[in-house]
Amino acid sequence: MSIMPESNETPAEPAEPEFSKEELRLAMKAFRKRLKLTRLDDESRLGYGPMSSGNQSGVAAIRPPDQYPAALWRALADQGKLRRNGGGLYSLVD
């Protein structure tokens, strides 16, 4: 039986990958488009038309597009461009 020497080193946490400005810009563009389409879809149902009460969509947060990794959305939230709303949902910062 071999005894492994004890190591006082703690395992390094995996570093967040770095994203280019172009990747971040395209991800924000995709997020805004998804949010816009989700709101339009919500408003297209009955009761939102100009002849009714004219309410706007109540959609404030969405699940970000899957074509980008979750680390990218966390990076945008850390930069203050998006807000984490819990449950994997993000919203735009005003």
Rank of each mutant, 00 (worst) to 15 (best):
residue 17 P to M: 01
residue 74 R to M: 01
residue 78 D to E: 06
residue 17 P to K: 06
residue 18 E to S: 04
residue 89 L to Q: 03
residue 67 Q to N: 13
residue 49 G to E: 14
residue 28 M to P: 04
residue 34 R to W: 10
residue 92 L to K: 14
residue 47 G to F: 10
residue 58 G to M: 14
residue 1 M to H: 02
residue 73 W to H: 00
residue 43 E to V: 05
residue 1 M to C: 07
residue 69 P to A: 02
residue 84 R to I: 04
residue 14 P to D: 06
residue 27 A to H: 01
residue 31 F to Q: 01
residue 19 F to S: 02
residue 66 D to K: 15
residue 77 A to K: 14
residue 68 Y to I: 01
residue 57 S to V: 06
residue 56 Q to M: 08
residue 25 R to I: 00
residue 20 S to L: 03
residue 33 K to P: 00
residue 91 S to P: 07
residue 70 A to M: 04
residue 74 R to D: 09
residue 69 P to E: 03
residue 19 F to K: 00
residue 88 G to L: 05
residue 21 K to D: 10
residue 71 A to M: 01
residue 8 N to A: 12
residue 31 F to E: 01
residue 5 P to V: 05
residue 74 R to N: 07
residue 67 Q to G: 03
residue 47 G to K: 13
residue 2 S to R: 12
residue 56 Q to H: 11
residue 24 L to Y: 03
residue 52 S to P: 02
residue 14 P to I: 07
residue 34 R to Y: 11
residue 56 Q to V: 06
residue 33 K to V: 02
residue 12 A to D: 11
residue 84 R to H: 09
residue 37 L to W: 10
residue 10 T to C: 10
residue 83 R to Q: 12
residue 80 G to V: 12
residue 21 K to Y: 09
residue 34 R to K: 15
residue 55 N to S: 11
residue 30 A to M: 00
residue 69 P to H: 00
residue 15 A to W: 00
residue 33 K to R: 13
residue 86 G to E: 01
residue 58 G to C: 11
residue 66 D to T: 13
residue 58 G to Q: 14
residue 54 G to W: 11
residue 77 A to P: 09
residue 11 P to Q: 15
residue 7 S to I: 14
residue 87 G to V: 02
residue 52 S to M: 09
residue 17 P to F: 03
residue 49 G to Q: 10
residue 7 S to Q: 08
residue 32 R to G: 03
residue 46 L to E: 14
residue 27 A to F: 05
residue 28 M to R: 13
residue 69 P to Y: 03
residue 81 K to T: 08
residue 38 T to G: 09
residue 70 A to T: 05
residue 79 Q to R: 12
residue 79 Q to G: 02
residue 48 Y to H: 15
residue 33 K to T: 09
residue 38 T to F: 11
residue 51 M to Y: 15
residue 13 E to F: 14
residue 67 Q to S: 04
residue 61 A to Y: 14
residue 60 A to S: 15
residue 62 I to W: 15
residue 8 N to W: 08
residue 41 D to T: 07
residue 93 V to C: 13
residue 77 A to R: 10
residue 3 I to T: 11
residue 49 G to R: 12
residue 80 G to F: 09
residue 57 S to R: 12
residue 71 A to Q: 06
residue 69 P to K: 06
residue 89 L to P: 01
residue 90 Y to R: 09
residue 89 L to A: 02
residue 24 L to H: 04
residue 61 A to I: 11
residue 10 T to H: 15
residue 13 E to W: 07
residue 22 E to K: 11
residue 90 Y to F: 15
residue 68 Y to D: 02
residue 61 A to V: 12
residue 40 L to Y: 04
residue 4 M to K: 12
residue 70 A to W: 06
residue 49 G to T: 12
residue 81 K to H: 07
residue 73 W to G: 03
residue 87 G to I: 04
residue 40 L to C: 02
residue 11 P to L: 15
residue 4 M to D: 10
residue 7 S to V: 07
residue 35 L to N: 10
residue 62 I to V: 15
residue 53 S to L: 07
residue 84 R to W: 02
residue 83 R to F: 01
residue 83 R to S: 06
residue 46 L to A: 15
residue 7 S to T: 11
residue 66 D to H: 11
residue 51 M to P: 03
residue 6 E to D: 07
residue 75 A to E: 10
residue 56 Q to I: 05
residue 5 P to N: 09
